[in-house]
């Protein structure tokens, strides 16, 4: 058995994108904009009904970017796994080797994920991190490429010690992990170049 059949039945398997080409394009542009302007909140996946605990934005990001070429690790449970693997067909790999890591609960330590190498820093992982709320204009002060002076972003549900772990991630540039923060149908990104200051 390929492991997909039980999940298919359990989850009732809701559809992916209604229009995989154009919805994928719109989601990609949202992620590209988020990655280019860290801390600005974009919308993606409003029409999706992914199985819990997967939220719409995280589902949209993975439908858009993950496929058979991208190793995947997650903590989202059987139903979400079946849904994602049915729609994207990505292989499951250990967290340290994954190109995409989905965290719906407490995420693995940033330093435990793929960092890339000095010659190929692009092999660093993308962490899709589900949080409770994203609010622009308050909270963290973000500085770095893509930001004219500073962007402010309040992240409710960021894991404990994230800012300190992020400073370490930032310091190892060009190596490191990039993060896409997702809640509901909204997302924001933290590329590895972004500096976070609190308060």
């Amino acid at each position: 058995m390929n492991g997909l059949t039980p999940g298919f039945a359990d989850a009732g398997l809701t559809p992916g994108f209604a229009d995989p080409v154009l919805d994928g394009q719109a989601t990609f542009r949202a992620v590209l904009e988020a990655m280019s302007r860290p801390g600005r909140v974009q919308r993606a996946g409003s029409a999706l009904r992914p199985p819990a605990p997967l939220n719409q934005a995280a589902a949209a990001v993975l439908l858009t970017l993950a496929d058979a070429d991208t190793g995947f690790a997650h903590d989202a449970g059987v139903a979400a796994e079946a849904w994602l693997r049915f729609h994207c067909g990505m292989p499951l790999v250990p967290g340290a080797q994954a190109a995409f890591v989905l965290a719906t609960g407490t995420p693995p330590a940033l330093a435990s994920l793929a960092q890339g190498s000095e010659e190929e820093p692009q092999a660093g992982a993308t962490l899709v991190l589900q949080v409770n709320a994203l609010t622009e204009g308050t909270g963290w002060r973000l500085i770095g490429p893509g930001i004219e002076t500073e962007h402010r972003l309040h992240v409710d549900g960021a894991p404990a010690g994230f800012v300190a772990a992020w400073a370490v991630n930032r310091a190892s540039f060009p190596l490191g992990v990039d993060v896409v923060l997702c809640v509901g149908d909204r997302l924001a990104a933290l590329p590895r170049t972004t500096m976070i200051a609190e308060g």
Binding site: P20, Q25, M35, S36, Q122, P191, R192
Partner: peptide
Amino acid sequence: NFAYLDEATKRMIRRALLKAVAIP
């Protein structure tokens, strides 16, 4: 396909673009 390239190729290019933005 829309915009000529197939979707698997677009995904590959899109992943490269996102990492390119993250590593200016």
